[in-house]
Design a protein around this nucleic acid. Structure first.
Lengths: 291, 291
DNA sequence: ATGATTAATCGAAATTATCGATTGATATGA
DNA sequence: TCATATCAATCGATAATTTCGATTAATCAT
């Protein structure tokens, strides 16, 4: 059993297609087949069911997969530690983020990159659920999301960044733009463009609406936050977002919605009990110092 | 970086003497030196200080050592789990069954659990059609049902367990309780409580009745086999079931119905052409040995 | 039927690990 | 101080392993 074989196995298990997995790994399908077989021999157990031209994990394969992942990760963690020791002259930081925190992320990246120009950054956007999966599979180093800091999972370490309030976003020329608060009832009068139901903020909003038995005047749905703000900037529509999603549109105003259940926590989440890269610590410090 | 190299490293770090470590590992000192150097190259850091003929861990080596140990351990832990699985010290068995075979299933489960106490068992009751779907989607490992062993489906592997005969179930105090057979005509005279039409045995029975143009005196329908037997045990009603459904009611007698089309095969069915878990094989052996 | 897709297999080539012998450095002890 | 023993590094040769490319056989979709 070698790390190489475990890496091949994990990729094959993820793809459930030897040819494509081999492609990913930059080896031939023949090599992959051979090495998987070799691994199966040393483990004395079949890892894949070969059903015709299909492959599928056996029970043993399902069991071995998380061990393989953990083994590989463990080795890489040690390597990462050594690299960090080399004074952040190298390294890689993989950040997951939900779309609602795009603006926060982008604001944080600029100073981080200035401070550590040699740290390679990789951003992965996705849903909170996607991210949680990736965190557990060690695919990302940390994630920015609206996860309650009370969310209970011993595999996770969740740090609160700030509270964010569900807000009506209007152009500064809008008659309400100077108001300190606004009720949902009033918002129902306005023409709105909202984020698609695939966004967690939309689910949050829909929950609130259902609880208060209010329905809105939704003229458009769109699955990109930046486009949403651009449309609001045309003065033709208004939208609803967490106020933290609004950053560098100088002409837009966020008016918090009145009510107690309108707040969510923006948090940064890490896999618990594993060594935290220097780059991750630096990035986190940058974020928390900001608030 | 390979597990082999990590193992060499750990031994060398423990011995702080390459020659002796190499001896322990059954390789030559030359090989050990070479592989350590290779590891140092991929990690881009020196793991040992070579002071004259002495070797001693560097700071990096000290850091890497626990990671190397953990990595190796992680891999071996997975291997151990698979080994256990192979000896049925672990594992999971998902069995589908139709309600009519509840008693058979329960009788088989006790000795199985005694033999393999660490195998987790999950039972899924449902109709034969449900089960067939689940089998094809690999959601269950096997199913117990009254499926004809001649049922033709290349995706399935069907093994006959025994023949079961449609029977009148009466209390031992019933005047007919010593009879060897009884005709459907006679049964029509008795007050009956029958399984609901959602059960396959009921469909089977209804088919037989239609073919013979007989109708019964049904006072109650109930969708639970055990309750059916309890009601029969009160002497107030009688019922009709496959004789194999009757197990541990000592005071009840099953009188086979006369006729050639009264038999059905109890079978165990597997998805064909896929790896069969050790637990499945053991469970099947236990069942077939019983008959 | 037919063509496309996929995993297994086989022999050859490339790469890598291992060995044995040697070297050079350095402790140790007379 | 000098000989000797010990130890890791190095080198060239060999053995083992990995990888590749081509082919086969099975099966899936049309």
């Amino acid at each position: 059993m070698e790390l190489r074989q475990l890496k091949y196995f994990v990729r094959a298990a993820e793809r459930l297609n030897f040819t494509k997995a081999a492609d990913d790994l930059c080896i031939t399908q023949s090599t992959l087949s051979h090495q998987i077989k070799e691994l199966e021999n040393t483990l004395n157990v079949l890892l894949f069911d070969r059903i015709g031209k299909r492959v599928k994990l056996t029970e043993a394969g399902e069991i071995m997969l998380p061990y393989a992942r953990k083994t590989i990760h463990q080795a890489e963690e040690g390597q990462q530690f050594l690299q960090d020791l080399n004074e952040l002259k190298a390294g890689k930081l993989i950040i997951g983020a939900t779309y609602g925190l795009t603006e926060l992320l982008i604001q944080a990246l600029a100073p981080f990159n200035q401070a550590y120009p040699n740290v390679q950054i990789q951003i992965v956007f996705g849903s909170t659920a996607d991210m949680l999966l990736k965190i557990k599979q060690y695919e990302i180093d940390c994630m920015l999301s609206f996860l309650p800091s009370s969310y209970n999972d011993s595999d996770l370490d969740i740090v609160k960044l700030f509270d964010s309030t569900l807000s009506l976003i209007v152009h500064e020329s809008h008659p309400w733009s100077q108001q300190k608060q606004v009720t949902l009832q009033k918002v129902a009068e306005l023409p709105l463009v909202l984020p698609s139901p695939s966004y967690s903020i939309r689910n949050f909003l829909d929950d609130v609406l259902a609880k208060n038995n209010i329905s809105l005047n939704v003229t458009m749905e769109i699955n990109d936050i930046h486009s949403l703000l651009k449309l609001t900037n045309t003065r033709q529509w208004n939208t609803i977002l967490m106020n933290s999603s609004l950053f560098d549109f100088a002409e837009l105003k966020a008016i918090p919605l009145e009510g107690s259940q309108m707040q969510r926590e923006a948090t940064i989440t890490f896999p618990a009990d594993v060594y935290r890269k220097k780059a991750v610590v630096a990035f986190t410090k940058l974020l928390t110092n900001h608030f």
